[in-house]
Nucleic acid binder design. Sequence first.
DNA 1: GTCTATAGAAGGATAGAC
DNA 2: GTCTATCCTTCTATAGAC
Lengths: 208, 208
Amino acid sequence: MTEKDKQTEEKIFEAATEVFEEKGMDGARMQDIADRAGINKALLHYYYRTKDHLFETVFQLLAGKMLRKFAPVFEKDLTLEEKIRFFFQQHITFMQENPRLPSFVLNEINRNPDRIKKLLKNVDFKKLWMKIEEQHKDELEKYNITIDNIPQIMSTIAAISVFPFAARGILEGIFENLGVEFDTYIEERKGFAADFVIGALQSRKASK
Amino acid sequence: MTEKDKQTEEKIFEAATEVFEEKGMDGARMQDIADRAGINKALLHYYYRTKDHLFETVFQLLAGKMLRKFAPVFEKDLTLEEKIRFFFQQHITFMQENPRLPSFVLNEINRNPDRIKKLLKNVDFKKLWMKIEEQHKDELEKYNITIDNIPQIMSTIAAISVFPFAARGILEGIFENLGVEFDTYIEERKGFAADFVIGALQSRKASK
DNA sequence: GTCTATAGAAGGATAGAC
DNA sequence: GTCTATCCTTCTATAGAC
C-alpha cells in the first residue's frame, strides 16, 4: 500500500527531524525516534536502513531549506535598502518558526564539513553576485561595495540575523538577568537589524 | 606524589578539552581521551569519576574563559569608538587561537541551557552597563543609545565577532566557491567589524 | 597512582513470524 | 508493512593486581 508507506515514512521523517534537531546526530537515539513516530525500531531500519542514512536524509532537507531562505531576496525587484529590510523580515520570521534549525545546521556542518559540499554543489555565488551587481550598480558604487568586501558584508548580515538563534541559550541567560524577553527581542530585531546595516552602509558613503 | 598527580590530571584535562571541543559531549569517547592523554580509561575515572563530571569540569572552564573575554573592554580607559576597535581586535584574535571554542560553547549551552546559569551566577550585567553609562554619557547620548537598545547593540557586536567561527564550516564552503581564504577573511574582519559598527552608530546621530 | 581485565548497560541492526 | 525477540558491538564504569 503506497498510501500507507507514505504515511509511515512521513511520520518517521518528522519524528527524526524533531529528535535530530534537539539532540544532534550523536545524541539522538533510534528508540527515541521510533517512540515519537509511534512505531518500533525495526521499522526505522526497514525504511532508512541505518541511522546514518536517516540522519543524512533529514539533514540535507533541513539544511537545504535553511540555505534556500537566503535566495528569495536575490529575486525580488526592490531597491538595495528595501531588499535588506525584506531579508531580515523574512529570514528572522522563518527562524522564529524553526528556532532550533540554525544551531543544528551550523553545528553538524562544523562536525563534518564534507556535508556542505553536497549542499552547495548547485549554487554559484559568483553568478548570484553578478545579478546583484547588475541590478544595483548605482547603489553599490554609492556605498563603496565591491566584490572584495562582499564576503564581509554578506556574512555580517547573516551574522546579525542568525546569531541570536545560534546563541539563544546564552542570550536567554543574560536577558533573564536584565528582565528582557527573548521573543520580544527577536520581534524588535527585524527592524533594528535593517536600520543597523543600512546605517553602516550609508556611513561608507561619507568615508569614501 | 602530588607533582605526578598534577601532571597526569593536567594531561587528562588537556586531552579532554581537545576531544570535547572536536566531538561535543555526546560524540566524545572516554577511550579517545585516554589515548590522547597517553594513559588508560581506568585512570580517567580515578581522577574524574564519570564522563559527565569530566565534561562539566572542562566545559565550565572553557565557557568561562570565553565569556570573560568580553570583560576587558569594560575596564579600559578608552573612548567608545576606541573600545569597539579594541574589542574586535582582541576578541577575534582570541578566537583565532581557539577556533572551535565558540561553536562548542554555544552548542552545549543550547543542548542544556541550565549550564549557563552556573556561568552567569556572579555576573551582574546591569552593573556593567551602569559603568559604561557613567564613562560614556556624552557619546551614548550622541548615538542615541539607551538601556532599551543595549541588548540589540551588544548582541550585534557579539554576532559580528563570533558568527564567523560558529558558522565556519558553511563559510569555508562558500568561500571556496569564491576563491577566498578563511584566514584572510578573519584577519580583515578585525578592522571591517569595527568600521561597520562605528558607522552604524554614527548614522544613529543623523536619524535622531 | 597506574594497569589489565571485565562487568554491565545501551544502542544499532537484523532474523523471522505474521 | 509491521511486530517481537535477539544478536553483537560499543561504551561507561569498576574490581582487583601491582
